Simulated assay, not measured.
Amino acid sequence: MANPKPVVPTRIPCEQCPLRQRPGFRDFTREELAFVSSFKIGELLADPGMSIMVEGESNPQLYTVLSGWGFRYKILEDGRRQILNYVLPGDLVGLQGNIMVEMQHSVEALTKMTLCMFERDRLPTLFQNHPSLAYDITWLAAREESMLDEHILSIGRRTARERAAYLLAFLDARAKATGAAPADKPAPLPLTQQHVADTLGLSLVHTNKTLRKLVDQGLVRWLDRGCEVRNREGLYQVAEWRPPAEGRRPFI
Rank of each mutant, 00 (worst) to 15 (best):
M1T: 13
K5T: 09
P6N: 13
V8H: 08
V8D: 04
R11I: 10
P13D: 06
C14L: 15
E15V: 05
Q21C: 09
Q21A: 14
R22S: 00
R22M: 11
R26K: 12
F28C: 06
T29V: 01
V36P: 03
G42F: 10
G42L: 05
L44G: 09
L45V: 08
M50H: 15
M53Q: 09
M53C: 15
M53D: 07
E57K: 09
L66K: 09
G70E: 06
K74R: 15
I75W: 12
L76S: 14
R81A: 06
I83F: 02
I83G: 03
L95V: 06
Q96N: 14
M100A: 11
M100Y: 08
V101Y: 03
E102T: 15
E102G: 13
M103G: 07
M103A: 13
S106N: 11
T111S: 12
K112E: 15
L115H: 02
M117E: 13
D121F: 07
D121G: 06
N129G: 07
P131Q: 04
L133M: 06
A134S: 07
Y135K: 15
W139G: 05
W139T: 14
W139M: 12
L140M: 14
E145N: 14
S146F: 00
S146K: 10
M147R: 15
H151R: 15
S154R: 02
A160I: 01
R161S: 12
E162T: 05
R163G: 11
Y166C: 01
A173F: 00
A175D: 07
A177H: 09
G179W: 00
A183F: 02
A183M: 10
K185Q: 13
L189A: 02
P190W: 06
V196G: 03
A197N: 03
T199H: 10
T199L: 01
G201R: 02
K209F: 10
T210S: 07
L211Y: 03
L214A: 04
D216P: 03
N231Q: 10
N231E: 09
R232T: 11
Y236F: 15
A239E: 05
P243F: 00
P243M: 03
A245L: 11
G247S: 05
G247I: 02
